[in-house]
């Protein structure tokens, strides 16, 4: 039962490793966007501190959006997707494997880089674990929701912009709770509620998104 899951996961991780320059582009995009904000809003320390959680979260969200179109595009072009859809294993499993590999290679680096970038904004050090945890819970949701959008826009003209239009409104709750968690901790009210909601959202997305994504892929291959 797990053989397709493991095979897809292993292969996608191997491919990501062989094409690791692409992954660095995503990470570099994240870093550059975050560093742009002080130029835009001014380098006043208090102000930077106030906007830091939001800036980091918006940048992480855009970076994962930027990488999304790669999720199925190659497999769609070379016919692998067709073969996967004819697998005797349930489609949900290998879809989940692809999303897992995608998050491990694009989401996880963002999660790990975020605390270092937060220091540029002079965030209290105590808030860094909260920031990391909120991103660790939130970015998988972004990947799961984004995968549905990527499957729906597969091979469609103007797919990239369309994908952003489809997916960004759905990202808003994640952004609210993610950035909110850090702000709540900084405000002294504790981040537990936000993080629990993010965890609940992750559970819900894990349960529903792979089905929707598999259905969307089937439609895209018709």
């Amino acid at each position: 039962m797990l053989s397709a899951f493991l095979a897809v996961l292993r292969r996608d991780l191997l491919l990501a490793w062989r094409g690791r320059a692409d992954l660095l582009v995503t990470l570099a995009f994240f870093v550059v966007v975050v560093c742009l904000f002080p130029f835009g809003v001014g380098a006043e320390t208090n102000q930077l501190r106030a906007i830091a959680p939001g800036v980091l979260w918006v940048a992480a969200l855009l970076a994962s959006l930027l990488a999304l179109h790669r999720l199925f595009a190659q497999d769609h072009a070379d016919g692998t997707l067709e073969q996967l859809l004819l697998s005797s294993e349930p489609a949900v499993l290998w879809v989940l494997a692809k999303i897992c590999a995608f998050w491990l290679t694009t989401g996880l680096p963002l999660v790990l880089a975020a605390p270092a970038l937060a220091l540029l904004f002079d965030i209290e050090e105590g808030a860094l674990p909260v920031l990391t945890l909120s991103l660790a819970l939130g970015t998988p949701i972004l990947a799961l929701l984004g995968a549905v959008g990527a499957a729906l826009t597969l091979g469609v003209r103007g797919g990239g912009m369309l994908l952003a239009l489809l997916v960004l409104p759905l990202y808003v709750p994640v952004l609210i709770f993610g950035a909110g968690a850090v702000e709540a901790w900084l405000g002294g009210s504790g981040a537990a509620a936000h993080l629990l909601l993010l965890g609940g959202g992750l559970a819900g997305a894990l349960a529903l998104a792979p089905w929707a994504c598999a259905a969307a892929l089937r439609i895209a291959m018709e």
Partner: peptide, 30 residues
């Protein structure tokens, strides 16, 4: 489980070797 389908596209990933492609194709097919 009873079907083998060979389409127009070869379903090969350029970054994998012939052997890796074949092993993946078999594992993914179940």
């Amino acid at each position: 489980r009873a079907l083998f389908y060979l389409g127009h596209a070869a379903a090969l990933n350029d970054m994998l070797s012939a052997l890796e492609n074949l092993r993946f194709a078999c594992a993914a097919a179940g």
